[in-house]
Design a protein around this nucleic acid. Sequence first.
RNA 1: GUGGGUGUAGUUCAGCUGGAAGAGCGCCAGAUUGUGGCUCUGGAUGUCGUGGGUUCAAAUCCCAUCACUCACCCCA
Length: 420
Amino acid sequence: MQQIQAPKGTKDIIPSESHKWHYIEDEIRKQCELFGASEVRTPIIEHTELFLRGVGDTTDIVQKEMYTFLDKGGRSITLKPEGTAGIVRAFLENRLFNEPMPQKLYYLYSPTFRYEKPQAGRYREHHQFGVEFIGSYSPKTDAEVIILAMTLFKKLGITQLGLHINSIGCPVCRKAYNAALHDYFMGYADDMCQTCRTRLDTNPMRIIDCKVPQCKEIAKHAPRTVDYLCDDCKEHFEGVKRCLEATGVEYKVDPDIVRGLDYYTGTVFEVVSDRIGAQGTVCGGGRYNGLIEELGGQSLPAVGFGMGMERLIAVMENNEVNFPAPPSVTVYVAAMGEAARLKAFALVQELRSKGISAEFDHMDRSLKAQLKYANKLGSVYTTVLGDDELTAGSVRVKCMADGTEEAVELDRLADYFDMK
RNA sequence: GUGGGUGUAGUUCAGCUGGAAGAGCGCCAGAUUGUGGCUCUGGAUGUCGUGGGUUCAAAUCCCAUCACUCACCCCA
C-alpha cells in the first residue's frame, strides 16, 4: 500500500515539536494580556470578497496565491491568506466599535494559506500570531504595537533580530510619491526587468522591492517615501521614532520596506533575522487607516502586525534558545502477574485522579521491557508491583535519576508523590 | 510559474572511472529468570524513489517521471 503524505507545503506538528508551540503560545498570551489585548478567533474560511477588498485585488496574494473554491451553495469561499481582514470583519460584524477605544485585539491559532512553492520558512499552510489595535491615530499606538512584538522576542530569549521601520505615507503623500517614482523610473525603463516595466504604471512602489540586480541598482537612488511625506505623516513618523527611543528599542529606518498588501498607510515595519534562510521576515506589519472603511465600517485608524509561528520557532532554534523540557510521567507502575497488573491499572487511574501523572504497561511486556519503556518516557519514578507487594501492601519506589529506593505503603502512594 | 540540489536499512548517510549492497545510531535477544540508563556479545532489516534505455553486467551512465529540498518571485 502506498502511503499518503501531507499535502505539499504543509507540516505536521508532532509531540517533539508541539511542546515548543505550547511554550510560545503561553508567552504570547501573557504578553498580550500585559498589553491589554484580548483574543479573537475568526473562521478559517471567509467570503472571497473580503480579501479582494481587504488585501487588494492587484496583490500577488489575491491574484495567484489564494485557496478559493465554490461551496455547495455556490458561494465563493477562500481559506484565509492573512489575518487582518478577518479580524476587521469580526470587529465590524460584532460591533466592537461600541467598546472602549482603542480596541486591542490579538489572534493566535490562525492557520494561514497561500498557494506558494515551498522553501525554507515558507509553507502553503503556516500559522500566524497577530495583533490589531483599532481606533487610535497616535504614534504611541504604532510604537506600542512594535514594542509588544519586540518584548515578546526578548521574553523568548531571542537576540540577533533587526527592527526595520519606514513610513509609506497616507493617500495624499502617496500620490505625490508615486508620481515622483514614475518620473524617476521612466528614465531607466529600458534597463529594468519585464515585471518592473509593468509595475511602472500599476504600482511603481513595488519596483523598490525587486530583487533583480539591475533593478536593485536603479532603485538605489530612487526617491524615498520619507522624502515625500506630508507634514502630518512626517510628524507622525517622528513621533513613532521618539517613542521607540524613549523605551530604548533599537531600530533602523529602511526606505526599502514597502509591504505587499494594499491596506498599509503610514508606518510599516519588519522584524528580520539573517539566519533562517532567505525568508527572514519573522514579523511584519504597520498602520492601515483606510481598511476599516474599505470593509464597510466607519473611518477608523488601526495598526497591527502578523508574526509567523514557524519562522519564530526557526529563529529560536537558530538562536539556541532553550525550550522547557516536554512534560514527562511522574511515576511508572510496572507489574507482573494478572492480579498485580489489574491493581497497577487501578492504581494508575487513582494517581491521575489526584493530579499525579502516571503510566502502566498496556502491552503485557516483560518486567525488563516495562522498565525500558518507563525510561524512554522519562518517568521520574518507577515502582514494581508483584504478588509480594500485594500481600505486603507496600512497594519500593525507585528514583530513576539516582537509583535510590524508598518503601511506601500502597494506599499512601498518592500522598507520597504529592509531597514530592 | 522559473531554476539548482538530493532520493541507498527504522534513521543519518558512505558506496571512486559500471563488476558479489555497507557503516554509525536505533531496534531485538543474551550476559543479568523481580529492575531501566552504562558496558560487552550476538542477531534481524533493503522493490538502491518509480518507469524505461545503454551494456555480458547498472545503486553507479542516459532519458522520463514523482517526491523532498534550496533559491527566484512574493511574504509570515
